[in-house]
Design a protein around this nucleic acid. Structure first.
Length: 887
RNA sequence: GGGCGAUUGGCUCAGUGGUUAGAGCACACGGUUCACAUCCGUGGGGUCACUGGUUCGAAUCCAGUAUCGCCCACCA
């Protein structure tokens, strides 16, 4: 190994000042973009990224996504795979409108005042302002996304995919339009899906109301009534029956008679239905088919009328008689007071119940009867289920497969229309006769598909699609589908879809269903679901609690690499983690360690010389450690075990390389009499190993490793094998292990530790040199000592080292893998075995007894594998030897 | 009401059949020249929530219990 120009690193790593420049260098290299043509035989590795919401500021969840996906893509890129990681944003209709509505409110406008067209113009303007932000934030985290392929779920390619997918679903008979009770948000003024309806336990009140029975004269009988329990008295305006259980003796006689609805005097048949729970409330239920899901089903069974009494903002409508115009809660109070005055409010009691809220705005949602577009998902779900059950798509971690399966097996049809403006308008047209024409063309259809009436007579559906419809097409719509584009042919299906488990149903399930339907193939082979990042004290981060960690602020403070390490270390797939300050500091310390060890290596570069001499034990050892580390890290990354990979490279870099190898190499570099060639050889080992470590660490810590690499490359292009950009450098090949060197080195390390302890026990001051006597038990130990002498002395701070015999042993003696060891001078003061030593002997004796017992157990010896038994035998011998050394 | 997950040192978390359970942080003791105090060395600290079972062998597999968390669900 020849050495070249000396190069230096600044005393401190300043991420803020170098990260941007490094990113620009990567961009200039074009390395984020796949080659025009894939290399022959290169495996494909494509990540389906969850497109972040266009309006969203980057939070720790995004940072985790970026860390995991960027680590994977950089690793595969270094391996020479044909990689693609495509960036984009989701238009998030309901979320974007929520944000824009607030903005225009400050400008004194409303959705209504602007109208659909101007509102959408304003939205596009807003998009132009916000869209670049999330991309820039991703770049700050080091995300090596292929920006030349950046996509948006509202761009024309996506629009075409949406139209095509919907048309195909329609043609396949999987789309229908019909009246149904859907969940409605009275604030967002749209339908929402079951998934967007978040249920929360709330304590409310349950009231008991009297409905008087209809007397023979057709008027309410003041002395006869049926009592019903309700948590929503205001809905009584829409009641069309009272139901009891068919076997309920209390009410049997009343079935078939009528009750009279207060205020509106509507006649309510008393009907029997087994769905009624006799034990709950009074056993009699008011039935409001238009405002309650149960009642709706029951109403259908009994052919009851469904009367909608709330308008879209949840105020009582004109069906509500004198209460018309009141907000639902005002109406509730009013109705209760009026009933109380009439003596028909029989009782009230606190009651815990489950209330649905709009995921976006938190408003209590309403069941609302309306005509909606639905996708018949059962056939789609069956295929998506089979893909996972039959292993064509694998879910990591495995336990979330059960959750997926359970949901797919109990899936409901998807109400896919939204009464919003920002999004893909459903490509359906109505003719005056009510025929529906669905078209996948960019232009509107020429005529009704059924009756041929001309275009002028057609009106387009005003509803738009649920955002998740276009998101569900993401893995292939981004690649140009439905066209057989080169990208689609080359990168689809994708390899891995990575996201948080919280959107398993929203997104993953929809991609599986729509992907299989549209492309006949699973959109990805692996579904990797990460856990959620929680606040330090547990639970969700929330602004009101003030425990939010802003990833960009962390990047400012400690750099992107440290943030990335802190998010990945000590985690496991599908499990939530807490992000603490201590973790971030630890990761920051690690980058600092890397920086400093590199500073040492670069600063220690000797004069240029041809390397000579045989590698020392330490060099052979570190080579073997790296070989093992490469092998382990590679396997861990291939298995998506990012935390395991992080632990492997952390230990290799810090413990093996910085703590041990660098210290050992220093001895050789500074050894008197070492030739220039020998120094060059040892330094070469330092440099090559550092290069390998940088390669191994780069996927996780791209910035600091790239920065160090540049300097190392200038100093020793041999070590970097001429690869000037680490991002494009190759992943280390699995090297040769050296078992002899590893075991000899580990004996030596243990011996050094034992002697350091002996020093403490003997009260020898840390700084002083001490004479050491070793008593090897056999020739093997004697040889090992000879080879390790150069390390043992300086690292244990002992000098001189001589050989002794068992008769000379004092009481204070250490049992080391190289034989018994004691201090040769001042043994007079060391005659007493330390307390610790006595304890050690006891522990050894106990361990020996245990292993003897085990080996004396015939069942064990017969039934355990030979290798296990052999290991125990060897251990027994070792323990006995140690005990013997301690005398 | 159903399902899923967690329970391992003071804290945050690894560890899916091999008898000696690991890491980082925190703690204690020692360390001021020559990469790093964002550091180095050494150490203490855990009956792996509990009870039973399977096995030669269990933190690990099975059954049950407890506590915590999450998801799903139409008791008015």
């Amino acid at each position: 190994m020849k050495t070249q120009t000396r190069a230096e690193l600044p005393p401190r790593y300043e991420p803020a000042s170098v990260e941007r420049a490094i990113y620009e260098r990567w961009m200039r290299s074009g390395g984020f973009r796949p080659a025009d043509e894939p290399a022959a035989g290169a495996p494909r590795f494509v990540i389906t990224q969850p497109p972040p919401n266009v309006t969203g500021a980057l939070h720790t969840g995004h940072a985790l996504v970026v860390t995991i996906e960027d680590t994977l893509i950089r690793y595969h890129r270094m391996r020479g795979d044909d990689t693609l990681w495509l960036p984009g944003a989701d238009h998030a209709s309901i979320g974007a409108q929520f944000v824009l509505d607030k903005i225009i409110a400050e400008e004194g406008e409303t959705r209504a005042s602007l109208g659909r067209e101007r509102y959408l113009e304003r939205m596009w303007q807003f998009m132009d302002e916000t869209r670049p932000i999330i991309g820039e934030q991703h770049r700050r985290l080091g995300a090596s996304l292929d920006w030349s392929r950046e996509r948006f779920t509202m761009d024309e390619i996506s629009a075409r995919a949406v139209r095509t997918a919907f048309k195909r679903l329609w043609d396949a008979g999987l789309v229908y339009r019909g009246e149904a009770l859907v969940t409605w948000c009275p604030r967002c003024l749209t339908t929402i899906s079951d998934l967007e309806n978040v249920h929360r336990d709330e304590t409310g009140t349950i009231w008991t109301l009297r409905y008087h029975l209809e007397g023979s004269d057709g008027e309410p009988d003041p002395d006869a009534w049926i009592s019903v329990a309700t948590t929503r008295p205001e809905t009584l305006l829409g009641d069309t029956a009272v139901a009891v259980h068919p076997d309920d003796e209390r009410y049997r006689a009343l079935v078939g008679r009528n009750a009279v609805l207060p205020f509106l005097a509507r006649r309510l048949p008393i009907i029997a239905d087994a769905a009624v729970d006799r034990g709950f409330g009074t056993g009699a239920v008011k039935i409001t088919p238009a405002h309650d899901a149960n009642d709706y089903e029951l109403g259908k069974r009994h052919e009851l009328a469904a009367i909608t009494i709330l308008d879209e903002e949840a105020r009582i409508n004109d069906k509500g008689g004198e209460f018309a115009g009141l907000d639902r809660y005002a109406a509730r109070q009013e109705i209760l007071e009026r009933l109380r005055a009439l003596g028909d409010l029989e009782g009230e009691a606190p009651h815990t119940m489950v209330v649905g809220h709009c995921e976006r705005c938190g408003t209590v949602v309403e069941p609302r009867l309306s005509v909606q577009w639905f996708i018949r998902v059962q056939p789609l779900a069956e295929r998506a289920l089979a893909s996972v059950n039959e292993g064509r798509t694998e879910i990591i971690p495995a336990h979330l497969k059960k959750v997926y399966v359970h949901w797919m097996e109990n899936i409901h049809d998807w109400a896919v229309g939204r009464q919003l403006w920002w999004g893909h308008r459903i490509p359906a047209w109505f003719c005056p006769d009510g025929h529906v024409t669905v078209s996948d063309a960019e232009a509107e259809p020429d005529a009704c598909a059924e009756c041929g009436i001309s275009r002028a007579e057609l009106t387009q559906e005003t509803d738009i699609f649920d955002t998740w419809f276009s998101s569900g097409l993401w893995p292939f719509s981004t690649l140009g589908w439905p066209e057989e584009s080169p990208d689609f042919a080359r990168f689809y299906p994708t390899t891995v879809m990575e996201t948080g488990y919280d959107i398993l149903f929203f997104w993953v399930a929809r991609m599986m269903m729509l992907g299989l339907f549209c492309t006949d193939v699973e959109p990805f082979r692996i579904v990797y679901l990460h856990g959620l990042v929680q606040a330090a004290g547990g639970g969700k981060m929330s602004k009101t609690k003030g425990n939010v960690v802003d990833p960009l602020q962390v990047v400012d403070e400690v750099g992107a690499d440290a943030l990335r390490v802190s998010l990945v270390a000590g985690t496991s797939a599908g499990h939530d983690q807490r992000l603490t300050r201590a973790k971030i500091d630890g990761a920051r310390n690690f980058t600092n360690k890397l920086w400093n060890v590199a500073r040492f290596v670069l600063g220690a570069q000797p004069e240029a010389a041809q390397a000579s001499g045989e590698p020392t034990l330490a060099e052979r050892w570190i080579g073997s450690r790296v070989a093992g580390g490469v092998q382990r890290a590679t396997a861990q990354l291939d298995a998506f075990d990012l935390a395991g990979y992080a632990a492997t490279v952390h230990e290799l870099a810090w413990s093996d390389y910085a703590d041990w190898f660098v210290e050992l190499a220093k001895l050789e570099l500074r050894r008197e009499g070492a030739t220039a060639g020998e120094r060059a050889r040892v330094w070469g080992s330092l440099a090559v190993t550092l290069a390998d470590l940088l390669r191994l660490l780069h996927p996780l810590m791209p910035f600091v490793t790239e920065e160090i690499w540049a300097t190392l490359h200038a100093a020793a292009p041999d070590a970097t094998r001429g690869e000037d950009l680490l991002m494009m450098a190759s992943w280390p090949a699995p090297g040769q292990g050296d078992e002899t060197a590893e075991s000899e080195m580990s004996d030596l390390m243990a011996a050094i530790r034992d002697i350091r302890n002996l020093r403490t026990e003997a009260g020898v001051p840390a700084g002083t040199w001490q004479a050491l006597v070793l008593e090897p038990a056999d020739q093997r130990q004697r040889d090992a000592i000879e080879r390790g002498l150069g390390y043992l002395g300086p690292l244990a701070r002992v000098r001189p080292i001589t050989f002794g015999t068992s008769e000379q042993r004092p009481k204070l003696v250490a049992a080391t893998p190289l034989g018994a060891a004691w201090f040769g001078v001042g043994t007079g003061e060391l005659e007493a075995a330390s307390e610790r030593r006595v304890q050690q002997v006891e522990e050894l004796q106990a361990a020996i007894d245990r292993v003897r017992g085990l080996l004396g157990n015939a069942a064990f010896v017969e039934r355990a594998p030979e290798s296990v038994v052999g290991r125990e035998r060897a251990r027994l011998a070792e323990l006995q030897a140690q005990l013997q050394q301690l005398g």
